[in-house]
Design a protein around this nucleic acid. Structure first.
Lengths: 266, 266
DNA sequence: CGAATGCTTGAGCTTCATCAACTTCAGTGG
DNA sequence: CCACTGAAGTTGATGAAGCTCAAGCATTCG
C-alpha cells in the first residue's frame, strides 16, 4: 500500500533537505518556477498579508509570478459569495495577461506577506527571442495549474464534504512538503482559516468545522488555528478518495517540473 | 441593459459570417488556436464519436490540439462518478505533456467525430527555436483554459443547480456562436445529453431534467434531444447570475485570441 | 417497426445551508 | 503579566436543495 509515509520517504530521497526555518515561509525564495533575468522584470512587488495583489475586472498586460509567500486566487459574486480557486505557492504563475486590454477575471489576495515578480508585456517579445524555451516552460507551468484546477473541479463536483476537506488538506500537505522538505514532523503551519477552507471547497465554514471535528475524533487529521496535523496519513488518503498513484503523480510531476526549471535557469 | 442580443450584434459586426453549413461541425476546420506547420506535426488523428482520445494514467509526450469536432475532458473516480472538466471546441489545446514521462490526469472523449493535431515532444524544441512566439501563444491558450476552469469552479462551488445549468447553457451558446457565426437562429445543436450536463455541473441527470423543465416552463431556454433553444436571452443571463460585462469579456478575449492566432500563423 | 438510448416524473431521504448564540484563542496596550 | 478586544472556532435546531431508487414514456436510428 502506497502511503504518505512513502511520500515522505520519496521526498527525502530525491532532495537535499534545506535548513529548517520554522514557519518562516516568507524568507524562502522560490526554488522552482520561472526564473527570469532582472533585465526583463520590473521591480518585484511586496504585498502585505491580507492585501489584494490584483482584482477581477482590472486590466493589465504583464505576467505575475509568485516569488515568496502564499497567495489565494479567488472570485467574488455580487452577493458576496466567494470561491477560492487556488492556493498559490512560490513558483506559481498567478496571472498571464499577454496583451494590453487583457482583463483579469479573478482576484488575488496575499495570505502571508508575499513577493511577486512582474514581467511587463513590453518585455515579453524580447524575452521570448533571447530564450525561446521560456515560452514552453511558461506553458508547462500554466498547464500544470490547469490540471490542478481540473482536479479541484472533480473534487467539488463529485465528492462529499468530508472527501473534499480531506482532499484539500492532503493536497496542501503534499505541496508544502515538496517545497519545504526540511520540516520533519507531521505538523505544519497553514496560513488559513476554516472559512478559507470552506471557500475553497464550496462549503460553509460551519460545515467545515463539523467535518474537521469528525476527522479529529476519528484520529485522521486535525486543523486548528492554522496548525495542521496529519494523525493517520493512510486513512487521510483513503478518506480523500484519492488513488495513491495520483498522489504519486503529483509528486513526480513536481519533481520533473523542478528539474525543468533548473535546466532553463539563466 | 447588455444582452445576448448585443452579443449577437457584436459577433456579426466583428466577423465575416462564414457560409452556413447546417449542423455539420465536423467539416469545420479550426479558424483559431495553434496553427503549426506540418513539418512539426505527426499525422492528424481521427477519432470516432464516443471514443476516447486518451485516458487518465496514460503517459505521453506530445501536445494535443483539437482541430475539428467536440471533445469532452473528464475524470472518473473508481466508483464510477464522472466529472466533465471542459467541453473543448476546435482550437483548444487538449493536453500539454512537455516531457517524456508526463502522466495524464484526465481523459478525453470525442462527442462528435473529431480531428486532433499532435505535436510530438521531439519536435517541440525545434519548433520553439524556429518560432519563438509559439511558446507564448501556447501559454496564452492554456491560460485562457485555466480561466475557464476557474469560472467553472466558481459556478460549481457557489451557484445553485438552476444557476449552474443556466450558466453552462449560456457559455456553450456563446462559445458556439463565436465559432460558427453563420447560424442565425437562437436554436442550435449541441452534441450533449442531459447526463453530460449533469456531469459537467456536478448534478444528477435527474435533477438537471427538473431544472430544465423549470427553465422551459418559464420561457427562458429549452434543451431537448441535443437541441438548445434560447427563448429569452436576457432572462438567461439573469438566471445564470452573470455580470453581463463578464459575458462581454469572454467575447472580447476570444476575439483578441483570434487576432493573435492569425498574427502568428505560418 | 423495433431496439436502444435518452428523457420524465414521483416519493422518500440525506446532506448540507442557515440562523443564532456562545466559547476559545491571539494579539494589544496598560 | 493581565484584561480587553476582535477574530476565529463551536454547537444546536431547523429546513431546503438535491440525491436515490424505481418505474414509465419519448425520440432517434438502423
Amino acid at each position: 500500500m502506497l502511503s504518505l509515509m512513502s511520500v515522505a520517504r520519496k521526498i527525502s530521497s530525491n532532495r537535499q533537505t534545506s535548513p529548517v526555518r520554522g514557519d518562516d515561509f516568507d524568507a524562502d525564495r522560490a526554488t522552482r518556477g520561472l526564473d527570469i533575468d532582472d533585465r526583463y522584470r520590473s521591480t518585484d512587488r511586496q504585498i502585505k498579508a491580507g492585501c489584494d495583489l490584483f482584482r477581477a475586472g482590472e486590466k493589465g498586460d504583464a505576467i505575475y509570478s509568485l516569488i515568496s509567500g502564499w497567495v489565494a486566487l479567488y472570485s467574488l459574486m455580487e452577493d458576496g459569495r466567494r470561491q477560492i480557486l487556488q492556493f498559490a505557492l512560490p513558483g506559481a504563475v498567478l496571472a498571464f495577461m499577454p496583451t494590453q486590454g487583457s482583463v483579469m477575471n479573478y482576484s488575488a489576495q496575499a495570505l502571508t506577506d508575499a513577493t511577486v515578480g512582474i514581467i511587463p508585456h513590453s518585455n515579453l517579445g524580447r524575452l521570448a527571442m533571447s530564450n525561446p524555451e521560456i515560452g514552453i516552460q511558461l506553458a508547462g507551468l500554466i498547464s500544470q495549474d490547469r490540471s490542478f484546477a481540473y482536479d479541484h473541479l472533480s473534487s467539488m463536483g463529485r465528492r462529499s464534504a468530508r472527501e473534499r476537506v480531506a482532499y484539500l488538506l492532503l493536497e496542501l500537505f503534499i505541496r508544502c512538503r515538496l517545497r519545504w522538505p526540511g520540516h520533519r514532523s507531521e505538523e505544519m503551519y497553514l496560513p488559513l482559516t476554516q472559512e478559507h477552507i470552506g471557500d475553497a471547497t464550496g462549503l460553509t465554514h460551519i460545515h467545515v468545522n463539523r467535518v474537521l471535528r469528525n476527522l479529529r475524533k476519528e484520529g485522521v487529521a486535525e486543523f486548528h488555528y492554522r496548525r495542521l496535523r496529519i494523525l493517520n496519513p493512510d486513512r487521510l488518503v483513503d478518506v480523500a478518495g484519492i488513488d495513491p498513484r495520483v498522489a504519486m503523480a503529483w509528486i513526480d510531476s513536481d519533481l520533473l517540473n523542478e528539474e525543468n526549471a533548473q535546466r532553463f535557469l539563466y
